[in-house]
């Protein structure tokens, strides 16, 4: 990426939730198998140990915390988006 995006295209709003078991199965299909799951008050925190990445799953939000690994981030983004409706 050399030039900043000139026009910011609005992204659709997202709706729905990411189901833990299905999401773990999807991660596994993509070779991400070392996942430690911790339950929280509002959902779960997934620690992708080999990738040193955290994914916080809640009913109304998902937060992906990773090192600057753009290919991994976009894969995780697209896997999360599979479970959400775009409006």
């Amino acid at each position: 990426v050399e030039e900043p995006p000139e026009v910011l295209t609005p992204k659709p709003l997202l709706s729905g939730a990411v189901p833990l078991e299905h999401f773990l199965a999807t991660l596994s299909k993509h070779g991400i198998t070392e996942v430690k799951v911790e339950d929280t008050v509002d959902g779960h925190i997934l620690h992708l140990q080999a990738e040193d990445t955290l994914i916080q799953l809640e009913e109304d939000g998902t937060h992906i915390v990773c090192d600057n690994n753009e290919p991994l981030r976009t894969v995780l983004r697209d896997l999360v988006l599979r479970f959400l409706q775009k409006l």
């Binding site: 709003l13 109304d60 998902t62 915390v65 990773c66 983004r77 959400l84």
Partner: peptide, 11 residues
């Protein structure tokens, strides 16, 4: 419908 916030934090 409920809105789902997807956020990223990169280190």
């Amino acid at each position: 419908l409920n809105e789902h916030q997807l956020r990223f934090t990169c280190r």
